[in-house]
Design a protein around this nucleic acid. Structure first.
Lengths: 238, 238
DNA sequence: TCAAAAGTGTTCCAATTACACCCATGG
DNA sequence: CCATGGGTGTAATTGGAACACTTTTGA
């Protein structure tokens, strides 16, 4: 009768969330990567770079776990956050280095870990690095120059980038990555970098001014060595 | 140091997959629902209707788990299958009836269960009901007349329908629901039912003949009491 | 000959693309 | 006065939407 519920067959599994935190510094699309916590000097394991993430805690929803990771890491709350895919390959945490790390930092290093991927969009100006319980130092890395990451995080990241591109085209979420006040050129540049192609300036402006809810401010760029640009703000719809 | 990895905080979690199996009977869009297995006559618990699903087993990927559930239920292999969302609300299996059922059929009824949602598209003609280890009888139910389901399966199902609509528009996966040979009217009717709106016949044909890879067969409909329609087949791209 | 669905083109409008010059500022 | 990026409009093309009648079959 009971088929897959004996512990022999359906063994315990851990569930985590991993967050792909995107940021934009006016030139490059970046993602926030952490150094994995370092084992107490004893071993001299090579530190791996990884996506921020953590195991789910008791009675915490997936979204809440992602918010918690994000808040611990960046102090930010209320930022754009979206579940995009769940990764459950049984071998995804079985790499040699990954196992080494898990043996130090997890109670059940042998357990498989299913991870739910989230991506979030933050305005880099708002970001303040912060010591977090699950990570060493964090840094922004160009999404087009990602090193080799722990676990299957390279795959997770590239899935996130695909999801971000689709979402950008479908729902125009780009402004989440910009400061409160921005110019249309900044916005266009952001789109060009995410989509990885040039856009026509006049057509781009026509489109965003039609489709987006942009309010021109009574304020212009200052201190630039060319004609100062009009600043805009998104009217966030309720 | 160790933060969320002590068993007190990150308690054991079960992971399951749930499959939303869509079918089309030439009139209605249907979904395959099961009766939950019945506790041995002893208790007379009311049988709930649910989506087919099962706990992940050892060393099985998420995709493989979904394929297994599908194969056990329908004997079908190689059919269209897509992960669409993961549901992890801590309360999602805490309903009264749900707990009753879990206490009979699961070794750890108190555990939270995270479930990864898949949907699949099957040609109803190919489907042969089959006794499965995780379910009682299965039946096809009109997606627009879904009863109250176990757990959070109503929410999972409506998320699946949204995902199906998007996918249909983006990737034209409609033919997966049709028999090998079909008419353009059947295809149009399918689109109309999934999207829940009328489509213009001439425009629809123009579009699918442009965009899809349809091969007209040297064969027509037979035995219909009107002009027999051209039959088509999809050229599946390699 | 009738009922039922199959099949077929054209026109109109909206959206998308391509494209080049003048402007305001700071140095 | 020069370098720099800001800002603007139009024409051509493409794609989507609306729309009605003739054809073939079986009963």
């Amino acid at each position: 009768m009971k088929v897959n519920n004996n512990d022999a067959e359906s063994s315990a599994v851990d569930v985590s969330v991993d967050c792909v935190v995107f940021g934009f510094d006016d030139r490059k699309l970046k993602v926030l990567l952490i150094e994995q916590r370092n084992p107490d000097r004893s071993t001299r394991m090579k530190v791996q770079t990884a996506l921020p993430g953590d195991l789910l805690i008791k009675d915490e929803s997936l979204d809440d776990a992602a918010k918690r990771v994000l808040k611990e890491l960046t102090s930010l709350e209320g930022i754009y956050l979206k579940q995009f895919f769940t990764f459950g390959d049984p071998a995804r945490v079985k790499g040699l280095k990954d196992q080494e790390w898990l043996r130090v930092f997890r109670n059940h290093p042998e357990r498989r870990v299913i991870t739910v991927g989230y991506y979030s969009l933050v305005n880099m100006e708002d970001y303040k690095p912060r010591p977090s319980s699950f990570a060493g130092k964090a840094r922004w890395v160009d999404v087009y120059e990602i090193p080799s990451l722990a676990f299957d995080h390279n795959a997770i990241l590239s899935t996130a980038i695909d999801a971000l591109r689709h979402e950008l085209l479908a729902d125009n979420i780009g402004f989440e990555l910009l400061p409160e006040k921005f110019t249309l050129s900044q916005l266009q540049h952001l789109y060009e970098i995410i989509l990885d192609r040039k856009l026509d300036k006049r057509n781009f402006r026509k489109n965003v001014l039609k489709n987006e809810h942009l309010t021109p401010l009574a304020e212009k760029q200052k201190g630039v060595l060319h004609k100062p640009a009009q600043l805009y703000q998104f009217k966030r719809k309720k």
